[in-house]
Design a protein around this nucleic acid. Structure first.
Length: 346
DNA sequence: CAAGCGTGGAC
DNA sequence: TGTCCAAGCTT
């Protein structure tokens, strides 16, 4: 089966910025960087970020020498911000403790910050052509169908991992791994798989049972609770906007925010909200609400606008001119709040 | 070890 | 509008 897939890959491999042509190997730094960026993130989204990171930091040593804040700024908008902090930590370990070279085996890679079971196997296979079984969402879907594994994920994951390990060939395991990704991304898609084009169709149990679109089964997801809060859009006499750095860990850790009340189930009343205001001002409630969906809750923010005569100092705060917002470590939800404030308060 | 952790696009 | 999902990791 592996040989057939490799033959298909030789003819149909996707061309991607972090990928070498079939039969070649890519720089391990770029393989690693792309794998971190691609965690739970689409190829289309990652593209521009990968280009910018490799332009600014062509080697892992360059990335290690960067300031964490510059890395966070460059990562802004990509989400799952712990990845950026772990990326930077990992680069420093590789640069200072490993002489600038990544470990070539799965176990060594697995020790590094931000590298879990999947990424260790993927980098070992793709960058170093080791026969490691990388099990991601694509491979889970392909194998669940090929072997008609009906047990729901994530319970079925250990069984799929064993099946994956049994398929990895000794010849060209790196290309095989990438071929499996391409198969999942272009043929064995979540909806309406293109079985007529699949090089593995003759071995697919799910297809023979006509249940390919029902697999893989997944456990039901919990409903997302609604949280609400009030954000404070503050400008000074020059039009600069008050931003504040969030705590290093947890949600949006280390990123910048528009100061706000806590986010809870209840809408804070005006007095409770104002008690949490970062400065004293004559507040005006802006029309509309900023909505944002996170992984595990939905958020609705009302926005109070205030103006202060001069850029007074605020704990963890920074005053940023509107034309320099693009360079800040602003997560998307906060960029939405700023946009709302600029549209209604200025 | 279940829960916490972002975002944008497809349908 | 809602729902799913995309090359998962950490605690």
């Amino acid at each position: 089966m592996a040989g057939v897939l490799l033959g298909w890959y030789d003819r149909h491999a996707r061309v991607l910025p972090w990928r070498a042509p079939p039969g070649r190997r890519m720089d391990p730094y770029r393989v690693w960087l792309s794998e971190i960026m691609l965690q739970q993130t689409t190829v289309a989204t990652v593209g521009p970020y990968f280009q910018e990171f490799t332009r600014r930091w062509p080697t892992v040593t360059d990335l290690a020498a960067a300031e964490l804040d510059d890395v966070l700024r460059a990562w802004a908008g990509l989400g799952y911000y712990a990845r950026a902090r772990n990326l930077h930590r990992c680069a420093r370990v590789v640069a200072t403790e490993l002489g600038g070279s990544f470990p070539e085996d799965e176990a060594g890679l697995r020790q590094l910050p931000g590298i879990g079971a999947y990424t260790a196997a993927a980098v070992a296979a793709i960058a170093f052509d080791q026969p490691a079984a990388a099990l991601d969402g694509n491979v889970e879907r392909v194998l669940a169908r090929i072997y008609a594994v009906a047990d729901p994920l994530p319970q079925a994951k250990p069984a799929l991992q064993a099946l994956a390990a049994g398929l990895v060939p000794d010849q060209r395991p790196g290309d095989y791994t990438q071929a499996l990704f391409d198969l999942g991304a272009t043929i064995c898609t979540p909806r309406k798989p293109r079985c007529m084009l699949c090089p593995w169709a003759q071995w697919c149990e799910a297809r023979s049972l006509s249940i390919q679109e029902e697999l893989p089964a997944k456990a039901a997801k919990a409903a997302k609770p609604l949280r609400r809060g009030v954000a404070f859009f503050v400008t000074d006499g020059t039009g600069s906007i008050l931003l504040r750095r969030r705590a290093e860990t947890g949600l949006l850790g280390g990123m910048m925010e528009v100061p706000s009340t806590g986010w809870g189930a209840e809408v804070p009343d005006l007095d409770a909200a104002l008690a949490q205001a970062p400065v004293q001002a004559a507040w005006r409630l802006l029309p509309g609400i900023v909505r944002h969906t996170f992984t595990h809750f939905e958020l609705e923010l009302s926005v109070l606008a205030g103006r202060v005569p001069a850029a007074v100092p605020v704990p963890d705060g920074t005053w940023v001119a509107p034309d320099r917002l693009g360079g800040e470590a602003l997560p998307t939800v906060m960029a939405k709040v700023v946009r709302h404030g600029l549209a209604h308060a200025t």
